[in-house]
């Protein structure tokens, strides 16, 4: 059996055969961290510690983490209003994230942005966005910078099923294709734009079908299957790095919680939610890792416990942090000379 035959005969999932065990364990850790972070944020919100609303991504952890698997700090992402998971997957510190949620000076945006504008420029996260579709042209601009400056970094643009009907989506995809820019459009199709079903609001069956109109590859995958997402994005990132232009990846997934904390859940059935909760991306990935001997139950439990401790420490840090001075309300409007 030749080496090539050996590889092709390897029937293990893409992620298992592609990434080192340590990388896979770290991915599981970050997925747990996203889940616990969202739960901690929800709990803090209910205790009145968080001002305003927020959009939780519980149930979408595989999409966030598997997409960021091969990204370095030099690679950029643009994120969405449901962006906590992207931020953590890209390597942000949950303490500073909580501090931002609590409106503290130690937060990523010094308390000016909150949940919907959280960013971590150091790890290449150009920020969540409060405008549906707002990040799409910006991602194309970031990719233009990389191409113009001769760098090989790529930009991953997260957006939801709602954004695919915005004009910005079409303008951005078109320009990325015209200029062959290194950008990967990752649509997290969680089936609802607030309450409106994507199936109702979108003329095509799969959002990835729209890639055809912009002459780029488009693929739809099970967004709760870590390995499936990782493989699709791997191919798209490689294409981008090779200078061959943009791709569109559609991750089919589901948010367990409502659109925001104001959601009264009048548009979904309990049965539908339970059906999707049974496809928990974290449980699936954990089982997969154990099945392939990457770790054992005790190891997985230790990873899960570590996430809980990290989140608790993050909340404590945020609580203890100072608020911005009220007199600084106009600070950061312009550059400080």
């Amino acid at each position: 059996m030749t080496a090539a035959e050996a590889i092709s005969a390897d029937n293990r999932p893409f992620a298992i055969r592609t990434y080192a065990p340590a990388q896979l364990r770290e991915a599981l850790r970050r997925m747990y961290l996203i889940r616990r972070f969202e739960e901690g944020a929800e709990d803090s919100y209910m205790r009145g510690l968080i001002h305003g609303t927020m959009h939780l991504s519980i149930g979408q952890e595989a999409s966030a983490m598997a997409t960021c698997m091969e990204l370095t700090d030099a690679d950029k992402i643009t994120s969405t209003h449901r962006g906590h998971g992207h931020c953590i997957a890209k390597g942000a510190d949950v303490g500073r994230m909580f501090a931002e949620f609590f409106g503290k000076e130690t937060g990523y945006c010094h308390g000016r942005g909150g949940s919907m504008h959280i960013a971590d420029v150091r790890t290449g996260n150009l920020g969540a966005n409060g405008i549906v579709g707002g990040g799409l042209p910006i991602a194309v601009g970031a990719a233009l910078t990389a191409k113009r400056l001769g760098r090989d970094d790529v930009t991953v643009c997260f957006f939801g099923d709602g954004a695919n009907n915005e004009g910005a989506f079409h303008e951005a995809l078109n320009m990325a294709a015209v200029w062959k820019l290194p950008v990967v459009f990752v649509c997290e199709n969680n089936r609802y734009g607030m309450s409106t079903p994507a199936a109702y609001a979108t003329a095509v069956r799969n959002i990835a079908d729209r890639a055809v109109a912009y002459a780029m590859p488009g693929v739809t995958v099970d967004g709760n299957d870590f390995s499936a997402v990782a493989e699709a994005v791997h191919i798209a990132v490689a294409r981008a790095r090779a200078g061959e232009g943009p791709s569109l990846v559609e991750n089919l997934t589901y948010r367990w919680r409502g659109h925001s904390k104001s959601d009264r859940n009048r548009y979904r059935t309990k049965e539908e939610i339970e059906e999707w909760m049974a496809r928990d991306p974290i449980a699936r990935f954990r089982a997969e890792l154990i099945a392939h001997g990457i770790l054992d139950e005790a190891g997985a439990d230790a990873i899960a416990a570590d996430a809980v401790a990290t989140v608790e420490a993050g909340i404590a840090f945020a609580k203890d942090s100072p608020s911005p001075a009220v007199t600084d309300v106009t600070r950061y409007v312009y550059a400080e000379s």
Binding site: G107, H110, G113, V121
Partner: peptide, 8 residues
């Protein structure tokens, strides 16, 4: 710039 607390 403002939303990102001066970080951009």
């Amino acid at each position: 710039r403002y939303m990102l607390g001066g970080e951009a």
